[in-house]
């Protein structure tokens, strides 16, 4: 179980998360819905052990997390897919390098990168291309492969398909579902698209509408 308990996090004076708790069971798809700016992405980064909360605990399969980012031994148990693939890859890497990067860092054999690239529908001629030479959809396919390459026990998809067309969205969700069924991983799908989440998680959606009061001082009027 990936569990966050009483997470509070502030950026400067802005309290973004205030006593938030959430748990994700292995094999489960949990949807997390809410409007822009409610702190969904921040929570996703805390759960992926990329952001240390001001207070509260995160535990992975019963072990409380002590170190964050590269100091977290459990980091590779959790895969994260971002909204904007272009901001999430090194522009100097080829697509195959992007997918193989976690394998290199973990000193594992690189063959798995090829297999995954093909499973995600990337053709061999795309392997050697750099991010600026491919479309958003193709780059996000590589990012999904990168997130799956170390076989994480939990997968967090943060607005993974917002930039993409309907067909690519259905394809990527299908690949992640196949991975979940094969490995029993838990999937947290974060999105403002309630329709997508309900379909993906079969109705297992947590609607998150935090009290607007302490959120974002820089944003004086609510978005309408």
């Amino acid at each position: 179980m990936l569990e966050a308990r009483d997470i509070t996090l502030s950026f400067g004076r802005h309290r973004v998360l205030d006593g938030v708790s959430l748990s994700l069971r292995p094999g489960e798809v949990l949807g997390l819905a809410g409007p822009s700016g409610c702190g969904k992405s921040t929570l996703a980064r805390v759960l992926a052990l990329l952001l240390r909360p001001s207070s509260g605990t995160v535990s992975v399969d019963g072990t409380v997390v002590k170190g964050w980012r590269h100091r977290a031994p459990q980091r590779t148990a959790i895969g994260l897919i971002f909204q904007q693939p272009r901001l999430a890859v090194d522009p100097r890497f080829t697509l195959l390098d992007v997918i193989a990067e976690p394998l290199r860092a973990a000193r594992r054999p690189l063959d798995r990168a090829h297999e995954l690239a093909e499973e995600l529908g990337l053709t061999p001629e795309l392997f050697g291309r750099r991010p600026h030479e491919v479309s958003d959809g193709q780059l996000q396919r590589a990012c999904v492969a990168r997130a799956l390459v170390l076989e994480p026990r939990y997968l967090i998809c943060d607005e993974m398909t917002t930039m993409l067309d309907a067909s690519t969205q259905a394809h990527l969700v299908g690949r992640i579902e196949a991975y979940r069924e094969r490995t029993g991983a838990g999937v947290l799908a974060v999105s403002h698209d309630a329709e997508l989440l309900h379909r993906w998680s079969d109705g297992n959606v947590r609607d998150w509408n935090p009290a607007p009061a302490p959120a974002r001082n820089a944003d004086p009027a609510p978005a309408s």
Binding site: T168, A170, H171, G174, L196, H198, R199
Partner: peptide, 8 residues
Amino acid sequence: LPSRRFVP
């Protein structure tokens, strides 16, 4: 579309 068959 997720509201329809949701197949790519």
